[in-house]
Design a protein around this nucleic acid. Sequence first.
RNA 1: CGGGGCAUAGCUCAGUUUGGUAGAGCGCACGGUUCGGGACCGUGAGGUCGCACGUUCAAGUCGUGUUGCCCCGACCA
Length: 570
Amino acid sequence: MRAKELFSPTLREVPAEAEVVSHQLLLRAGFIRRTAAGVYTYLPLAIRVLKKIEQIVREEMDHQGGQEIMMPIIQPAELWQESGRWDVYGPELFRLKDRHDRDFALGPTHEEVITTLVRGEVNSYKQMPLLLYQIQNKYRDERRPRFGLLRGREFIMKDLYSFDRDAAGLEVSYRKMHEAYTSIFKRCGLLFRPVEADSGAIGGSDTHEFMVLADSGEAIVLYCNNQACGYAANNEKATLPAEENISGETLKPLIRAATPGCRTVEEVAQFLRISPQTIIKTILYETEKEVVAALVRGDREINEIKLLNTLGCLRLELAGAKTVQQITGAAVGFAGPVGLKGCTIVADPEVLAMVNAVTGSNTDDTHCLNVNPTRDFEVNITKDIRMVQAGEPCPHCGSQLLEAKGIEVGQIFKLGDKYSKALGATYLDESGHSLPIIMGCYGIGVSRTMAAAIEQNHDNNGIIWPAAIAPFQVVVIPVSTKDEKQVALARELYQRLLEAGIETVIDDRPERAGVKFKDADLIGYPLRITIGSKAVSENRVELQPRRTGEVTLAPTQNLEKIVLEMLTAL
RNA sequence: CGGGGCAUAGCUCAGUUUGGUAGAGCGCACGGUUCGGGACCGUGAGGUCGCACGUUCAAGUCGUGUUGCCCCGACCA
């Protein structure tokens, strides 16, 4: 490709709309342009990267027995009504009407369509396992699209659905996908980690997320320090070993103490000169059916996902000041479990092990001292409801947990019979019994993977593409386009590299060298070949990998071979 | 959906406080000098100041409304 003809408008300045580095660099390097909030046009360089990623995905899906199909983006409302998700999915579902006033949705995911397809075509255990996938645009009217391609309203996703006769079959399919995903992200040159996760609204039992590790990631991953153990989980999901240490302290009688104006754990701890660890934090929540008081140790954070799962409710919000006043009889900041009525009390197991603790007293400006669970208050539910923090013990082996930030680029779910039951997808087994098909679903955010790769691979000058997904492998830069010898040599080498099957750009623009170098760094070609005057006289060119920036000189004979070797090493 | 901010040339922004005939840098076009890390000089093109209504002799500037975009929180590939 000649840079002169390549449509990749680069920007010198950072566009005001971009906050995160992948968004900034995709705009600056001429990969994307915004069309609407969370909706982007992919320019030629982006398309090349996306196709590379898609190709890797296809190969790994096919390798595991997946078969590619293409389902419609436009889906009739009846399917969603049948599964019950037309009402449940909420405003995130893009809805539209046709000219006959019939309801449709733009597909945010395809369980409905594929399950309907399969229920009509798969009737026997002999037709399974079946793995079907597609790569196409998905539509989700996000509450807040942001971070460029990391969270768009239109994005490219690979979604595969597995159909098996039983849980054992699903287990096999699930493991295949786990393996495929591992290969995919490895081949893309990304540093990633599969972690245990919460299944959220999609439902199902087991689920893993694949996290690309990057400081800008929104998700927090906890992983075991002990490599042999290998435990890793999203912090929403991470669990703890059962609490065992009960303090030998003797129980003291409960008393009340004035704590004027101390609403937060920090304020109370400071005022009473105690450690936050001796305080029981009481937070009130409202669900669609009840008010809940959640108790955790003062230095802990409540994990609202765990709490939501524990309660089995659909909606969970912090209680408003009014509700708090009504339930506790005190202002926000003085709630405590002692004598608390009119709400369900959920406690983290750690709380039950506390002795002579401090809590709010449900009276303004007063706290209770020497509170002891069981003796002073009853708990309705005891369940792990707190965030696990780095430094705490691994639930599997007890070693220390470490923390990293990650971008979720893929997730695999065991769906079980949730959709096959709702949509009536059954098969007959050997004995003629009708059973629901057991399903799994497996997604990869392709466009997000591209952005995540940049989040993980960039420097102050621009993108550093892993060679496997780079839009081009090599850029050939004649330093001066006025020097005909340089240009001639550059063209010759460019041709030879093309013939060797290496994706190469020749920067033949009549620009100064500095401009070309800056653009080469910005776009992130893995390897740069610079052809200056010395190259012409000595027949040696400069090779400079983008990542290291180390310049090596190479003779022009056999350049293809040297380049190929360097690229494999990248 | 709640909270905050922004909207002026292709891009980044000034001008709004105190209403008075539209600005800079970059980019673009042309000419010249340059030429190994975003050169310099000159000339030029380019804007119904997001949109609507209002106040006023006069609105980019003040008021009301509206739309779009961005950021922070609860959801997701």
